Simulated scan of single mutants.
Amino acid sequence: MIIAIPALLISLLLLYMWYEANQNNIVTHTIPTTYTNQYHIAFISDVHARKIHYHLLQKMRHVDAVIIGGDFCDKRTPIQLVERNLQTLATLGKIYYVWGNNDREIEEAQLRALFKKYHVTVLENESVMLQEKLWLCAIEDTSTRKYSFEKAFASVPQAVDTICVSHNPGVFNRAYVYKPTLLLGGHWHGGQIRLGPYGMRPLGYTKIDEISEVVSNGYGTTLLPLRLFARPEVHLITLHAQK
């Protein structure tokens, strides 16, 4: 009996951690801009080997852009699941992709073939215009040591709003010289398993300022399919001009 109680408590804790890891939470943000009004973005990162649920999309309206912030897959992810997840996200809007540190554990040629099939724009130290006065730029994953904010911002004109994506938010400070409107990142999983306020990595956060930041807890998991006090997230971001 004495042994059974701790075993039951551990089982209940593991069940809760599995439940938390499989939640579908949408976090909404309104980001102040200078030139852009009412542009809607879905931001998802760190999907890894998790299936994106259709009922998550039912909670989200059609958006102007879907930004995948890296680690869309890893060595555990069947290529069929990668394609299915792309199909699911493509129902929301045009997809833009940024590399994470685990993505290339799948053969890169296979991934690029799928990106081409689903008209995904891959950003690697480069930028693209989303609409007049709004640009999106992104760096290569920092683990490659080939990332360059200088190259990413090279084509961005003056007097525009800029969204900059780095899978690893640990280098956000290096982008500040270019004065982006919004920085997006993931990678940390919010620590994934936390003991109260303590975790291996920081929780995701949102900072609204002259340069705003959104760092996601991510959608999937790594190592163990469990979370504790670091809920999975997908972000619905509205860019709105300040009055």
Rank of each mutant, 00 (worst) to 15 (best):
L89D: 00
I106M: 13
I44T: 05
R104Q: 13
L184F: 08
T34S: 12
E126W: 00
L13P: 04
N37H: 15
G191F: 10
A154H: 06
P180S: 00
D71N: 15
L81A: 05
D71M: 01
I163Q: 00
G190Q: 08
Q192T: 02
M17V: 07
N168V: 07
L14S: 04
T91H: 12
Q131D: 05
L183D: 00
K243M: 08
R50W: 09
S212D: 11
N168L: 03
T28C: 03
T121Y: 10
Y19I: 13
I52V: 13
I95S: 01
P78K: 04
G185A: 04
A175D: 08
N85Q: 03
L8I: 12
K51P: 03
E210Q: 10
Y198G: 00
Q158N: 09
D209L: 09
E233C: 08
R50S: 15
M200Y: 11
A230V: 06
T222H: 06
T88A: 14
V82T: 11
K117S: 05
Q158K: 14
C73M: 15
E233Y: 02
K51S: 11
A49F: 11
L182N: 06
H48G: 05
V82M: 05
T142R: 14
V160T: 10
N22C: 09
K116L: 14
C137W: 03
T36D: 00
E126Q: 15
M17E: 05
Y96M: 00
I5A: 00
L114C: 01
L56F: 07
N125C: 12
Y97Q: 04
M129K: 15
G220W: 02
T77G: 12
V120P: 09
R227W: 12
L228W: 14
Q58I: 06
R50A: 13
T206F: 01
W99V: 02
R227G: 08
V66C: 06
E20H: 12
H62C: 04
Y147G: 08
A154M: 02
I211Q: 08
L239E: 03
A7D: 02
W18M: 02
S11K: 04
I193N: 07
T36A: 07
L236V: 11
H48E: 00
H29G: 10
H62S: 10
A90H: 15
K117N: 09
H187K: 15
L203P: 06
S155K: 15
